[in-house]
Simulated assay, not measured.
Amino acid sequence: MLTWLQRDSLSFPPLSKALREPNGLLALGGDLSAERLIAAYRHGCFPWYQDDQPILWWSPDPRTVLFPDELHVSRSLAKLLRQARYQVSFDQAFAEVIQACAAPRAYADGTWITTPMQHAYWELHKRGIAHSVEVWRDSELVGGLYGLAMGRLFFGESMFSRADNASKVGFVTLIQQLKAWGFVLVDCQMPTQHLHSFGARAIARADFANYLKRHIDQPNKAPWIA
């Protein structure tokens, strides 16, 4: 049985209660307050739903993650990075990045980054928890991504690209910077071939939960400036 979350409680059911089909569905309801979102990520789950659904909370098993030490950069992408065709910044245009990530995609119906979701993550950004990566071509925003930094873990949420390989440049730059700042794991949530090409891989949900316990309260070296 799925748990309906109560607005007066921030607790989530044990991750072991998540459904096998659909994989990882853990709970429904609640709200998108900053306090609940923080509690969710600390617990090992995240919201993912569309406008015509209640808020759905997920903790898939296995979990797709990327260890910064295992980042794979293709030769063609490495060449592009050396050419410095794009400029990359951090936390300079969070609202624009999340709006671009929420824009309609040709390969998908609708978006899970609803207006309430955008407002919720903007609140987390104001609290210094949610961060954006911007990719610029001259002064034009052509790619980017956003996610949450908690302890020595980064929880990736979404990315977009308006120019060839722009989001890839932003992603690789972020991972390299996270490694320098002492981060140990990037949560990619769900598997895609795109993420696997960078070295992302699946780990058991129980192993992911152990990483949370060990590292979510450890300090990192990130200044989060451009």
Results as ranks from 00 to 15, higher is better:
1 M>V: 12
2 L>T: 00
3 T>N: 01
4 W>D: 02
5 L>A: 08
8 D>W: 01
11 S>T: 15
13 P>F: 08
15 L>R: 00
17 K>M: 09
19 L>V: 03
20 R>S: 15
21 E>R: 13
23 N>D: 15
24 G>D: 01
25 L>S: 04
26 L>W: 01
27 A>K: 00
30 G>W: 00
30 G>L: 02
30 G>T: 03
32 L>A: 09
32 L>T: 14
33 S>A: 13
33 S>Q: 13
34 A>K: 01
36 R>V: 08
39 A>M: 11
40 A>E: 03
41 Y>V: 09
42 R>V: 06
44 G>I: 04
44 G>Q: 03
46 F>C: 04
47 P>W: 08
48 W>V: 11
49 Y>N: 09
50 Q>N: 15
51 D>P: 00
51 D>R: 09
51 D>F: 02
53 Q>T: 13
53 Q>G: 09
53 Q>W: 11
54 P>F: 06
56 L>S: 04
57 W>Q: 03
58 W>M: 08
58 W>V: 05
61 D>S: 13
65 V>Q: 02
66 L>D: 03
67 F>P: 00
70 E>M: 05
72 H>K: 15
73 V>Y: 05
76 S>Y: 12
79 K>H: 12
79 K>I: 02
83 Q>D: 12
85 R>P: 03
88 V>R: 00
90 F>Q: 00
92 Q>A: 06
93 A>M: 10
93 A>C: 13
95 A>N: 06
96 E>L: 15
101 C>G: 07
101 C>P: 04
101 C>K: 04
111 T>K: 10
114 T>E: 07
114 T>F: 10
115 T>N: 14
116 P>V: 11
116 P>I: 08
117 M>G: 03
118 Q>K: 14
119 H>I: 06
119 H>E: 15
124 L>C: 12
130 A>H: 02
132 S>E: 05
135 V>I: 14
136 W>C: 07
136 W>Q: 12
136 W>H: 05
138 D>A: 14
138 D>K: 01
141 L>Y: 10
141 L>D: 07
145 L>A: 11
147 G>S: 08
148 L>I: 14
149 A>F: 03
152 R>C: 13
154 F>N: 01
154 F>K: 02
155 F>V: 06
159 M>G: 06
161 S>Y: 07
161 S>H: 10
162 R>E: 12
163 A>W: 09
163 A>L: 13
163 A>T: 06
167 S>G: 09
169 V>G: 02
169 V>A: 05
170 G>Y: 02
173 T>E: 11
174 L>K: 03
174 L>S: 06
175 I>Y: 03
177 Q>L: 10
180 A>N: 14
180 A>T: 13
182 G>C: 13
185 L>I: 13
186 V>G: 00
187 D>Y: 05
187 D>C: 11
187 D>N: 15
190 M>V: 15
192 T>Y: 09
192 T>S: 15
195 L>R: 10
195 L>G: 07
200 A>C: 14
200 A>G: 13
204 A>K: 12
204 A>V: 02
206 A>Y: 00
207 D>Y: 01
210 N>C: 11
210 N>H: 14
211 Y>P: 00
212 L>T: 04
213 K>T: 11
214 R>I: 09
217 D>S: 12
217 D>R: 09
219 P>Y: 07
224 W>A: 04
226 A>T: 06
